[in-house]
Simulated scan of single mutants.
Amino acid sequence: MRKVTVPVDMASEQKSILGIISKRQLIYFIIGGSIIYSYTPTVFNFVPNILISVIICLMAATPTAAVVFFLAFYKVEKYQLSLDKYFLIKAQYRTQLGCWRKGR
């Protein structure tokens, strides 16, 4: 059987939202944005000064935005997987470990 190299990457996900992001990435942005939107008003009201409140809100939103960005866009190049799919495979690996016997 002869193997032929395909010049197009068939395994990558389709960028269906305006040709820029995929549906999976859009879902991450919606979830991350709603999480940031839920706790930002509370953080904003801690300090009476508006400028300091904005700076504290940006500092509080940075870790959530970084996690969302890495899960949505970062790829593990060794396995050609996005980071969230890589973590799911690693988490499922523990459930597949066991004592396997040959026989019945």
Rank of each mutant, 00 (worst) to 15 (best):
Y28T: 01
I55T: 12
T95L: 13
R94A: 05
L58I: 12
Y93W: 09
S82Y: 13
F44Q: 05
Y28H: 15
I89P: 03
F69P: 00
I50L: 03
V47P: 00
Q25C: 06
F70W: 07
R24W: 11
F29V: 06
L58E: 11
T40Q: 05
I31P: 02
Q80W: 02
K75W: 01
L88Q: 14
N45M: 09
A60S: 14
C57A: 07
R104K: 05
A91Y: 07
P63Y: 09
V54H: 05
S82G: 07
L88Y: 06
V76T: 05
Q25V: 08
A60R: 05
Y86T: 09
I36M: 15
I27S: 13
A72Q: 09
I27E: 09
Q80C: 01
T95N: 12
V47C: 02
Y74E: 03
I52N: 03
F46V: 03
T95C: 03
A66V: 14
I55L: 15
R101W: 11
Y79G: 01
I55E: 03
K102H: 02
F73L: 12
A61T: 10
L71F: 14
R104E: 03
Q96S: 10
K85E: 09
V68G: 00
C57Y: 05
W100S: 06
Y79N: 07
T62W: 08
K102R: 08
N49E: 11
C57H: 03
T95Q: 12
K75T: 12
I31C: 12
A66S: 09
P63C: 05
R24N: 11
D84Y: 08
S34Y: 12
